[in-house]
C-alpha cells in the first residue's frame, strides 16, 4: 500500500499516529486494531481514519461497547499470535478494563514463567486542556506505571508519536501508549525513515545550566515555552522529555541534575504517588549531593479533574512552571 503522507512537510500528531498504524498494519499481518468507533468514523479523534477502508473490517475492528471486552479479547488474540492495538476512546473510560490490564495483561508473562507474551498496545488519548466534560481529561498513567509488567509511554511530538507507536506495537511487552490529546493537532516534521531512539529513553530537548525541567506528553510543549521565557530573564533551563514513564530513564535526568543542581518536574497527573514523585525520589537517591534545592513538582492538584472552565488554573501551566523555577533558583 502506498505511503500516504510520508513526506517532508509537517504533519499533525493525529496524522503521524495514523501513519504509524498504517505502516504497522502493512508490515505485520498479525497486527490488528480494535476499539469503539475506530472503523467508519476513524475514531473520535480520526487517528484511525481510512484504515478500515484500506485494511478491512477484520483488521480494523469496531468492537461492541465494552472496554473489559476489548482488553480481555486482546489477551486471547495475543495468545493466538496476534498483535492487538487497542484504542480506549478516552482516558476516563479505561477503568472498566483495568481488571484485565492489571490482573491478566500485566501478569501473564510472569505467571507462565515466560511461556506466554502479551504484545498488546493500548492507545489512550489522555490529559486535559481541551475544554471537555467529565472523564475526558484525565491522566491515569500512575495506575499503570504502578503495575509491574506494564510499560507506559507518552510521546510529545508527531515525530515521536510515529516512531514510538511503531516501537510499542513491535514490543513483546504490553505498552500503555498515552497520546496527549491537547497536542493532537500540533504539527511537526517527521523523519519517516530515521532510526528511532530507544522507546524508553528520555531526550534532552534544550541544554541549559541553571535548572533541569522535566515533562512528558502534554507538558513538554509547556516546558519548552517556559524555557524560552526563562531565558529572556537570563535563566538557562535544560528541558528533558521523559518520553517513557515506565521504565523511567532516571540516568538521563540524574546526569542533567548533576550539572544543574536543580530539578522541576511538570506533569498533569495528580501530585500524590504520581510519576513526578517517583522521579523525585530516584533523583534524591542518586544525586543527593548535587542538589542545591528541593526537587519541585508542578502537577495537577490532588482533586478530581475540575470543570473545564477552571482547568487552565488547575493544570501545570507556564506560569506555575516559571514560578517553580524561580522558587528552585531562589532556594
Amino acid at each position: 500500500m502506498a505511503a500516504h503522507i510520508r513526506g517532508p512537510e509537517p504533519v499533525s500528531m493525529v496524522q503521524a499516529l495514523n501513519e504509524a498504524l498504517r505502516s504497522s498494519l502493512e508490515d505485520d499481518p498479525k497486527v490488528l486494531l480494535m476499539g469503539e468507533d475506530i472503523g467508519a468514523l476513524g475514531g473520535v479523534f480520526r487517528v484511525t481514519a481510512g484504515l478500515a477502508k484500506d485494511f478491512g473490517e477484520a483488521r480494523v475492528v469496531d468492537t461492541p461497547l465494552g472496554e473489559a471486552g476489548i482488553i480481555g479479547a486482546a489477551v486471547g488474540l495475543a495468545m493466538r499470535g496476534y498483535r492487538p492495538v487497542c484504542e480506549i476512546q478516552f482516558d476516563g473510560f479505561v477503568f472498566p478494563a483495568v481488571d484485565q490490564l492489571v490482573t491478566q495483561v500485566a501478569k501473564l508473562r510472569n505467571r507462565s514463567r515466560g511461556l506466554l507474551s502479551m504484545p498488546i498496545t493500548v492507545r489512550i488519548p489522555f490529559g486535559g486542556g481541551i475544554g471537555a466534560i467529565e472523564h475526558h481529561s484525565e491522566s491515569p498513567e500512575a495506575y499503570f506505571a504502578h503495575t509491574p509488567g506494564l510499560k507506559v509511554v507518552a510521546p510529545s511530538t508527531p515525530a515521536d508519536a510515529f516512531a514510538m507507536l511503531r516501537q510499542a506495537i513491535a514490543s513483546d511487552d504490553p505498552v500503555i501508549f498515552l497520546e496527549p490529546k491537547r497536542r493532537y493537532w500540533d504539527k511537526g516534521v517527521v523523519d519517516w525513515t530515521a532510526l528511532a531512539a530507544p522507546l524508553h529513553a528520555a531526550a534532552v530537548l534544550v541544554t541549559g545550566s541553571d535548572v533541569t525541567l522535566v515533562g512528558y506528553g502534554p507538558t513538554v510543549r509547556t516546558c519548552l515555552d517556559a524555557s524560552v521565557v526563562a531565558a529572556q530573564e537570563g535563566r538557562s533551563v535544560e528541558v528533558i522529555d521523559l518520553r517513557s514513564i515506565s521504565p523511567l530513564d532516571t540516568s538521563t535526568v540524574v546526569e542533567s541534575v548533576r550539572r544543574t543542581g536543580r530539578l522541576v518536574i511538570a506533569t498533569e497527573a495528580h501530585a500524590s504517588f504520581g510519576p513526578a514523585s517517583e522521579l523525585a525520589a530516584r533523583v534524591q537517591e542518586q544525586a543527593f549531593y548535587s542538589l542545591e534545592a528541593p526537587v519541585l513538582r508542578v502537577t495537577g492538584y490532588d482533586t478530581p479533574y475540575p470543570p473545564s472552565r477552571i482547568e487552565e488554573d488547575w493544570l501545570p501551566n507556564m506560569d506555575r512552571i516559571l514560578d517553580a523555577i524561580d522558587r528552585s533558583l531562589a532556594y
Binding site: 492538584y301 490532588d302 482533586t303 475540575p306 470543570p307 477552571i310
Partner: peptide
C-alpha cells in the same frame, strides 16, 4: 458565574484533609 478555581478543592472528602488544605493554600 465563572467558577472559582479554588472550588476544585471543595467536597473532595467529607472533611478537608490537612494536605489538601495546604495545596489549596498554595493555589
Amino acid at each position: 458565574p465563572e467558577p472559582d478555581p479554588l472550588s476544585a478543592f471543595d467536597h473532595v472528602y467529607a472533611e478537608q484533609t490537612a494536605e489538601l488544605a495546604q495545596q489549596r493554600g498554595q493555589m
